[in-house]
């Protein structure tokens, strides 16, 4: 019996324009660069609109055949706070999907970069990778800058406290993927 194989894609959305727009000194240290690139997403971006955007990109770049690959596509998780998400897709269509993410340049009227962090066969691995990555970013923020300033901005960003890795699993259960976990 052959199992249906799928791939989980962990991606993050970066906003390069925020580097210069509010104040023009958001790049002098590594921590400032990290904080200003990883902005929270616009609340008008819903999981539905995100999937629609990806489908549109697939249709535009790969035509009817490309669109057909997006039928089993589903967004498993998306967090506005951290602008990260997980997409599930069939194993054979991974490359086309990644290419279509490559071609997306703006979301909700804002210029953005879709950065794929990891592609894996199980959602567990994606989650581990995600928490490891946020931990790494936190470490970089604190290492390159005075702690006091760094954590202050972070607290503002994540609504009271460093809950990025822990807060994730709670959200996921709400999305109806407890079976996988």
């Amino acid at each position: 019996m052959v199992r249906l194989k799928s791939r989980y894609i962990l991606f993050e959305i970066l906003y390069p324009d925020t580097l210069s727009s509010p104040t023009s000194l958001n790049f002098t240290t590594q921590s400032q660069a990290i904080l200003s690139l990883h902005q929270p997403s616009n609340p008008t971006i819903t999981p539905k609109s995100l999937v629609q955007l990806i489908r549109l990109s697939l249709a535009k770049n790969f035509g009817t055949l490309g669109s057909s690959t997006s039928i089993p596509l589903s967004l498993k998780y998306f967090s506005h706070q951290t602008s990260t998400g997980i997409i599930r897709i069939n194993q054979e269509n991974v490359r086309l999907l990644l290419a279509s993410l490559f071609f997306i340049t703006s979301i909700g009227g804002q210029n953005c970069i879709f950065n794929v962090v990891c592609v894996s066969g199980s959602i567990k691995q994606c989650e581990n990778k995600s928490s490891a990555r946020s931990r790494l970013l936190m470490r970089n923020v604190q290492a390159s800058d005075g702690e006091a300033v760094g954590t202050d901005v972070l607290n503002a960003l994540f609504d009271g406290g460093i809950k990025v890795p822990g807060g994730r699993s709670g959200d996921d259960e709400g999305d109806g993927m407890d079976g996988v976990l």
């Binding site: 580097l19 086309l96 290419a99 950065n115 794929v116």
Partner: peptide, 17 residues
């Protein structure tokens, strides 16, 4: 066009396509 930049993994994947 500051948003016209990608991580190299993504470009590698596209070149594979």
């Amino acid at each position: 066009h500051l948003h016209f930049v990608r991580s190299y993994h993504d470009v590698v994947n596209l070149l594979c396509v």
